[in-house]
């Protein structure tokens, strides 16, 4: 497989973006949506997630390792491109550029987000409704979370489109067009979920 390393890495990068990272994003947005039902509902859900058996194994295998690979290899991919939307302003070329920009924003956001919640928890802070309320009480942090969450959701939705192409599922121009509509609908719907949750904390 040595000769196929690049092929393998690229396909792994594409796969990990959807499974498990994409699935984790869906789960994370869903569980956090409990915040719209009030403080107790959110704390109960956060407690359940935070006290799952084998939590560290789950976090490492499902979140940290795949995310680390996807992020590092993704940066390499992003910085080997020579963007040219000024010369070729087609829709897909814009999506190509935005996919790379949102990827970098999402990485910055997630790094900060993990630092502020998981790393803080390791040092004894309690991850609950109050913690998020404190973080989001600053208008600057609220804006940062809006941009970060929208970037992550866009990167996932559009990444789903390229996943379907990269694995050879959508081949015809028609199937690729329809999957564009589908993935953009995913972006809009998940964005509503994400923003609703954020608003519940203020």
């Amino acid at each position: 497989m040595a000769g196929n390393r690049e092929f393998f890495n690229r396909r792994l990068h594409s796969l990990l973006g959807v499974i498990p990272i994409g699935l984790f994003l869906l789960q994370h947005l869903t569980v956090n949506h409990f915040a719209t039902d009030g403080v107790d509902a959110f704390n109960k859900a956060a407690n359940f997630m935070g006290n799952l058996p084998f939590r560290y194994v789950l976090e490492t295998v499902v979140i940290y390792l795949p995310l680390l690979f996807h992020a590092i290899y993704g940066l390499y991919i992003a910085f080997t491109a020579k963007n040219n939307v000024s010369r070729f302003g087609h829709f897909r070329n814009w999506m190509f550029l935005v996919q790379r920009i949102t990827g970098v924003i999402t990485l910055i956001f997630i790094t900060w987000h993990v630092w502020e919640t998981r790393v803080a928890a390791a040092f004894g802070a309690e991850v609950n409704f109050q913690m998020m309320q404190d973080i989001l009480s600053s208008p600057l942090m609220f804006a940062f979370y809006v941009v970060g969450i929208l970037s992550a959701i866009f990167h996932f939705a559009n990444g789903l489109w390229s996943f379907l192409v990269s694995w050879g599922i959508t081949q015809s121009p028609r199937s690729q067009a329809i999957s564009t509509y589908f993935t953009m609908a995913v972006f809009v719907l998940l964005s509503i979920v994400g923003i609703q949750t954020l608003l519940a904390f203020v």
């Binding site: 000769g3 690049e6 890495n9 690229r10 491109a81 040219n84 897909r92 999506m95 190509f96």
Partner: peptide, 15 residues
Amino acid sequence: IMGEGGLANCGNSQN
């Protein structure tokens, strides 16, 4: 085309 510099490098910009 599954080797170095091959197919997998496509980023789907569709230019």
